[in-house]
Design a protein around this nucleic acid. Structure first.
Lengths: 148, 148
DNA sequence: TCCCTTGCGTTCGATTTTCGAACTCAGCTA
DNA sequence: TAGCTGAGTTCGAAAATCGAACGCAAGGGA
């Protein structure tokens, strides 16, 4: 059972965990959510090797997390990498990481960027809630039931 | 700027992303949240190589995500790996992955395990909300402001 | 036309990680 | 005494990553 076989396990947690758990992939998504869209810009800001960057972008294209969109510059047609709806839906994952990072890795740190709600200016926080009663949940509030 | 240097970047998203973005780490955390606690059980259920398992467990111990807790079996003292409070607080990250996996990777799949709120039996869902007005947020609702 | 630049990769040899099988070691148990 | 078990450690082979050079297509300028 190599690492890659988790990508086809019948588990809706394993598969995303195996996909985003490859080296560079989470950092790449962070960069994308911060607005980076072009190969050269990923390469420059992350200092990832070009061959690995090519590979990770291709995996995310194949998974339909990213799409290539043509654009014009200096009269030339080029392509940039943009999030699909599926990709944009990863926002809670990134925000959960950040919420955790703020609490546990540097409570008093000046963040390298600030996030706020456009409408009211409030902060941003990830949480887990019950789809039944709407209350916020922690790991202890949740019962795990294995199948078969 | 090697991969490891993201672990010390002044960004509350980069550091968690670099930590959990190492191969096997997210899958290891999944297994821990599902109740696995011993070296042999991780090795058997994930089929990870023993040396990498040792390394990943040590990183999570060092980061204070896990702690080693002694227990007794057959009159012998052994140790098991358990989540610290910091580790338990990663629950929203895992739940965000699962919420995404359910929506986008297999909407109609029989899950390998089921989760429900102990108190009301409801389902579990990760989301992002505004700390000001409490409304649910998507990436589009959030303004990013870079620092200096 | 010829040469230069740009963005986006590809190639390739060297270095790191990961793999898997065997080995170690301590503390029971027979 | 010999064997078993959980928890690692070691080590040579295989895979992933690195960084530097190369390829290439589409302009632009002379």
């Amino acid at each position: 059972m190599p690492y890659s076989s988790f990508a086809s396990m019948p588990c809706t947690l394993s598969r995303p965990a195996a996909l985003l758990g490859e080296r560079w992939t989470l950092l790449l998504l962070r960069q994308i959510f911060l607005g980076t869209r072009r190969f050269e810009d990923f390469q420059a800001t992350m200092d990832i090797s070009r061959s690995v960057l090519t590979d990770r972008l291709n995996v995310l294209l194949q998974e339909n997390v990213l799409k290539r969109v043509p654009y014009h510059e200096d009269g030339r047609t080029r392509h940039e990498y943009r999030l699909t709806e599926k990709g944009r839906d990863l926002y809670p994952v990134l925000m959960a990481l950040r919420t955790w990072g703020e609490k546990w890795m540097a409570p008093d740190e000046e963040e390298s960027f600030h996030l706020h709600h456009r409408d009211c200016g409030g902060g941003v926080r990830a949480k887990v809630e019950c789809t039944g009663c709407g209350v916020e949940l922690t790991a202890r509030d949740v019962q795990v039931t294995a199948r078969e």
